[in-house]
């Protein structure tokens, strides 16, 4: 059994949030700290191509595969919203 198999949803969500905060801080170097409530497009100005890079890096970092079929801008308003989506739509690699 891999580590991912035993990860609970709240644990995975916390890992996703931590990873996204670190990645967004490195990618965008925002003036204000990135938090779970930070708005990805409306505050950080995250583009779709950077969002794609973010998803790939989260996948690699956490060794998961994210199903993007149901992803929508409405589900990625904040860091926490996207973390919720990823938690609900990912499988261990």
């Amino acid at each position: 059994m891999t580590e991912s198999d035993t990860t609970t949803a709240p644990e995975l969500r916390a890992q996703v949030v931590d990873t996204m905060v670190a990645l967004l801080t490195r990618m965008l170097r925002p003036e204000a700290p990135v938090t779970v409530g930070t708005q990805l497009m409306d505050e950080l100005g995250l583009s779709s191509s950077l969002a794609l890079e973010l998803l790939l890096e989260v996948e690699d970092e956490l060794e998961i595969q994210i199903d993007v079929e149901d992803l929508d801008e409405d589900r990625m308003t904040t860091v926490g919203d996207l973390a919720d989506y990823i938690t609900q739509h990912s499988t261990p690699r």
């Binding site: 965008l28 925002p30 003036e31 204000a32 708005q39 409306d42 505050e43 950080l44 100005g45």
Partner: peptide
Amino acid sequence: SRAAALGPATARDRF
């Protein structure tokens, strides 16, 4: 107000 909400000045101006 949408422009003002953007953190980076370059993003504000671009918007």
